[in-house]
C-alpha cells in the first residue's frame, strides 16, 4: 500500500485497575479512509479512541499521528465524544458549543473573535443548524445535539476526525445528514474514524473497518474483511451477515 499512514498504534495496552481493556493493539489507519470501529459492548472501542487522543494513559505502547506523537499533532485532530458524556443542561447556546471547537487553534488565554465566530456559523450552516444558533442546548433534540457536536468538530478543520457513536439516539434524517458530511470529509482527503454500533449499515457507510474485542481481530477494507468469519470472531457467536448483497 502506498497510501500515507494517518494513525499508527503500536503494542497498545490500556487497563482500568490492572484489568486490561485493550490488549496489545497494533493498528495502522491509512489516510483518507472512512473507518468504522466495531465490537461488542466493553470491547474497548471508546477506550481506543481516548487513548489515541491522550485522554487516557496507556500502560504500554505508542501512538503516532502522521509519524509524530499526538501532543505535537493536536491541531490535525478533531474529536466528537459520546453525546451522553456531557451535561446538556450546561448554560450555553448551540453557537457557543461550536465555538469551543476553535479553542484548540487559539491556545490558552486568547479569546475567539470575529474570524472564529464566522467559522462556527459556517459549520452550523453545514449541519443545518444555523437557525437554531442561539438556542439553549438543553432545548435541542438528540439529533440536533449530535449535529452541533459534529459542527464543533468541523470548525476545527482537522485532517483526522474521531467520533464516538455519532449515530446514537439520532433520528433517521440526522443519521443520513451526518453520514453525508462524513463522506464529504473523506472526499476532501480527510481521515474519519467512527465508533459504530449498527452492523447493518457498515458496508453502506464505511470503506474501512476495524474489528475490536479487547484484542484487535482484523482491520482493512470493508469489501475484503467484513465477513461472517471476522464477525463471529469478534462477537463470539455464530454470526451470519445476510446484508452483503
Amino acid at each position: 500500500m502506498n497510501k500515507k499512514i494517518a494513525v499508527k498504534v503500536d503494542d497498545l495496552t490500556v487497563a482500568y485497575n490492572y484489568k486490561p481493556v485493550l490488549w496489545d493493539i497494533d493498528l495502522e489507519i491509512p489516510e483518507g479512509v472512512l473507518m468504522a470501529i466495531v465490537g461488542p459492548n466493553g470491547a474497548g472501542k471508546s477506550t481506543l479512541i481516548k487513548s489515541i487522543l491522550g485522554i487516557l494513559k496507556p500502560i504500554a505502547g505508542s501512538i503516532s499521528i502522521y509519524g509524530k506523537p499526538y501532543i505535537k499533532q493536536r491541531k490535525l485532530v478533531a474529536y466528537v465524544p459520546q453525546k451522553g458524556s456531557v451535561d446538556w443542561d450546561f448554560p450555553t447556546t448551540a453557537l457557543d458549543v461550536v465555538l469551543m471547537g476553535t479553542y484548540g487553534s487559539l491556545g490558552w488565554i486568547k479569546r475567539p473573535r470575529q474570524k472564529e465566530k464566522k467559522a462556527a456559523l459556517e459549520a452550523l450552516e453545514k449541519v443545518g443548524m444555523l437557525s437554531l444558533k442561539n438556542r439553549q442546548i438543553s432545548q435541542l433534540s438528540g439529533g440536533q445535539q449530535q449535529r452541533i457536536f459534529l459542527a464543533r468538530a468541523l470548525v476545527q478543520n482537522a485532517s483526522i476526525y474521531f467520533m464516538d457513536e455519532p449515530f446514537q439516539g439520532v433520528d433517521a434524517t440526522t443519521e443520513i445528514a451526518i453520514i453525508n458530511i462524513l463522506k464529504e470529509l473523506r472526499k476532501a482527503g480527510k481521515t474519519v474514524i467512527v465508533v459504530h454500533h449498527d452492523l447493518q449499515t457498515v458496508p453502506e457507510y464505511f470503506d474501512w473497518v476495524t474489528f475490536l474485542n479487547v484484542k484487535k481481530i482484523a482491520t482493512g477494507p470493508v469489501k475484503d474483511i467484513f465477513n461472517d468469519e471476522n464477525l463471529t470472531k469478534t462477537y463470539g457467536i455464530n454470526y451470519k451477515v445476510s446484508i452483503q448483497e
Binding site: 487522543l53 474529536y79 465524544p81 458524556s85 469551543m100 479553542y103 464543533r152
Partner: peptide, 16 residues
C-alpha cells in the same frame, strides 16, 4: 474559555 470548555466537556478540553 478554558474553565468553560473543561467544565462542559472534559474530553474535548483534554483533546484540545
Amino acid at each position: 474559555k478554558e474553565l468553560k470548555v473543561s467544565t462542559f466537556d472534559k474530553g474535548l478540553a483534554s483533546s484540545l
